[in-house]
Amino acid sequence: MPINYYIFLSVCLFSIGIVGVLTRRNAIIIFMCIELMLNAVNLLLVAFSRMHHAAAYALDNSTLVGSEAQIFVFFIMVVAAAEVTVGLAIIVMLYRNIHSVDINFLNRLKH
């Protein structure tokens, strides 16, 4: 499959994520949108990795060139998981405090 399809898919997912972050007020949904963006990037990384690897493999079938990018993906997934843990904890605490997960109420930083 040409790389273009993956790129388009990633861009779509990423844009959906951005629009979601920008338009929604529910913290949980925003959170999910952020995950969506991260995964869009992951998808792109995997796709490019595969492409580069295939190109290198054609010349030398013992090479690992290109496959490092996939380590990034794991890395991102781990960080995302950690982030989700912390983020969800914050949201739970928020809900306990202000009984809402609406981010428009969260403007305390202003003061």
Partner: peptide, 14 residues
């Protein structure tokens, strides 16, 4: 500029 609205920060970022 620092309104405290998360949304506006994200918008500025984007």
């Amino acid at each position: 500029l620092q309104s405290g609205q998360v949304g506006s920060y994200v918008l500025i970022m984007v």
